[in-house]
Amino acid sequence: MKTPPVVSPREWEAARQQLLVEEKQLTRARDALAAKRRQMPWQAVEKEYEFDGPEGKASLLDLFEGRRQLIVYRAFFEPGVTGWPDHACVGCSMVADHIGHLAHLNARDTTLVFASRAPQPDIQRVKARMGWTMPWYTIIDDFDTDFGVNEWHGTNAFIRDGDNVFRTYFINARGDEALGSTWSYLDMTALGRQETWENSPQDYPQTAPYAWWHWHDEYDGGGESARG
Rank of each mutant, 00 (worst) to 15 (best):
E195Y: 07
Q120C: 01
A128N: 13
D146C: 05
D163Q: 13
N156M: 14
G154Q: 02
A103K: 00
R193Y: 10
S184H: 06
D141K: 05
E198M: 03
E177I: 13
T182C: 12
D146E: 10
F170Y: 10
R129H: 10
M134Q: 07
G148W: 03
D203N: 13
A173Y: 03
Q124W: 01
V126A: 11
D161R: 09
G100Y: 02
E177Q: 15
V165N: 01
D203E: 15
P135R: 00
W183I: 10
T168A: 11
T182Y: 01
R167T: 08
G162E: 04
Q202D: 11
N150M: 14
N106T: 05
L112K: 02
F170K: 07
L179T: 01
R108H: 05
L112D: 15
D144F: 04
W183F: 13
L179D: 09
L112F: 10
A157I: 11
N156I: 13
P135S: 09
T189L: 02
I159M: 00
D144G: 01
T133C: 03
I99G: 00
N156P: 09
Y185W: 12
K127G: 14
F147N: 02
S181T: 09
F170W: 06
Y169E: 15
I99C: 02
R174G: 07
M134Y: 12
L191Y: 02
A118M: 04
W136L: 00
Q124L: 12
F166I: 05
T189A: 05
H104A: 08
N156C: 14
H153V: 11
I99D: 01
H104C: 05
D142W: 13
H104M: 11
Q206M: 09
M134K: 00
N150L: 09
N172I: 13
I140C: 01
G162I: 06
T196V: 04
T133M: 12
L186H: 02
F166G: 08
Q206P: 10
T145N: 12
S184N: 09
N199E: 15
P201N: 09
Y185L: 09
D142V: 15
A190L: 02
D109N: 08
N199M: 12
F170E: 00
Y185A: 05
T155I: 14
A173W: 01
N172S: 07
L191T: 04
L105T: 08
T111L: 11
P201D: 08
G192A: 12
A115N: 03
R129E: 05
V113K: 08
S184Y: 04
D146H: 09
D163N: 12
A178I: 07
W197N: 10
W197V: 01
G131T: 14
A157T: 13
Y169R: 07
N156D: 02
F114W: 10
N150H: 06
M134E: 08
W152Y: 11
A103L: 14
Q120E: 08
G162K: 00
T133R: 05
W132I: 12
E195I: 02
P135F: 08
R160V: 01
P121F: 05
T196K: 14
